[in-house]
Design a protein around this nucleic acid. Structure first.
Lengths: 243, 243
DNA sequence: GCAAAAGTGTTCGGAGTACACCCATGT
DNA sequence: ACATGGGTGTACTCCGAACACTTTTGC
């Protein structure tokens, strides 16, 4: 594989829901000097350059696969970042110099976000030093990654309001309470259980299964699945330009 | 001004409404051989490379200004295009070679769309060979510009459904019938006049003026303005994830 | 006076919201 | 038996949709 250009990279904001909180997958970054003394340590989002002949969508898929071992995950391109100073913080310049890269070169980064259930990911995959961090506990990240993360969150909240993607953060089979929790956590609000269920019962693409939860210490809930087929057949334009 | 990189460009899809149709601003492209014989002629969107130290937003503003002489126009970044074959059509390769550029170099293009009233634009500005073309009459464009245009349209329709941007396509002062027409044309549908007016009357940021149309051969309509201040103060999150 | 678009109210059905209790399971 | 979350219905309000006539201007 030939790297296509040093100037262009794809960054993936990988969101994972664990039935409690919304998390983002971050990678450790530690810079040590020649004697092995740690100069600093922090975390980054996951990015990479694109290869020659590779589409950016394919690059995003590849980055996601390298980190999680997963394919066919919801991925959405949400914004491109190119501010001239985006790599200019002191630690970032040291890091790039150490890596034999030119810190004064501007890198354009195309941002994607991914949605998945943390259940699906084995963090030991390929031995990368990676972990889930709740989005409201993320500290100062490398480069402009705090900006990229907050823009990804904004874009994801906007999409989830207008398109059915909530279950992308859940296992294939899920309960309505889990789905409700997804919306409550992401939109930072609460819903009435009966009203929520009345609402989703109108969504024909949310298919009830003849299957129930097992091994829970309460009445087991019915499981549901999303049917993309039904969704594609029933979606229609909606006019709602009041804000 | 130093060009920052040959690899990166910003393309602007400039939409203009003329009270009848939605138009896009296109530039003539004609390639002639050494003897002056025309090899082909077609049209392109407007793009340019970014300058060193220039943000992409500033580059988009600059491109728009160069073409229209206008500033402070609604501009939204909607997608980035980087397909390896995006410059590979026969005519495009000839054009790039003639321009001393390498047609095998992949160029990443960051797409913005602009919204304005065609009234605001003097096409003779800077003598560029530029014209308004109704979006439903656009033929085959250069490069992947048909794709960029259709993605811009998709993004614009999505934004207009969820945010109040319809009046960006109108003069500063406009009538409710003009606003209705904007939505009807862009969403390719029709609305009942009374229902439409009931709906917009709930939008406090649409401010009625003590001013009426003049010189029209019918009852003159009241003029309205958009108040960004009121909008910013009243907007709140809306939950609507049914599609 | 006529052509052209402005402006205005009511009825109906369906969705949003608020609210409280019994049920099935594991321990 | 008890703790835990699952699952259900009703009343009220507000929005969306359908629908027709009078008013003001220029010519």
């Amino acid at each position: 594989m030939v790297k296509y250009s040093d100037y262009i990279s794809v960054d993936c904001v990988i969101f994972g829901f664990d039935f409690e909180k919304l998390n983002v997958l971050l990678v450790d970054r530690t810079l040590s000097d020649a004697k092995g003394n740690e100069l600093f340590t922090d975390m980054t989002l996951t990015g990479n350059h694109i290869y020659e002949g590779e589409t950016i969508q394919a690059a995003a898929d590849r980055i996601l696969f390298d980190l999680t071992g997963l394919k066919n995950i919801y991925l959405e391109q949400f914004r491109t970042f190119a501010h001239p100073d985006r790599l200019n913080k002191e630690n970032d310049r040291k890091w790039l110099l150490h890596d034999n890269r030119d810190p004064d070169k501007r890198i354009v980064s195309i941002g994607y976000f991914a949605l998945l259930s943390t259940q699906k990911v084995t963090l030991e995959w390929k031995g990368r030093n990676v972990k889930w961090v709740p989005v409201d506990e993320v500290g100062e990240l490398a480069f402009d990654h705090n900006l990229i993360l907050s823009e990804a969150l904004k874009a994801m909240r906007s999409t989830i309001l207008h398109e059915p993607i909530g279950f992308e953060l859940l296992p294939t089979k899920f309960t309505l309470s889990q789905l409700q929790k997804v919306y409550e956590i992401i939109l930072d609000t609460g819903f009435d259980k009966r009203n929520f269920r009345k609402k989703v019962s109108r969504m024909s693409y949310l298919m009830p299964l003849d299957e129930k939860q097992k091994g829970v210490a309460h009445k087991p809930a019915r499981l549901y699945m999303f049917s993309r087929e039904v969704y594609e057949n029933t979606k229609k334009e909606i006019l709602n330009f009041i804000v």
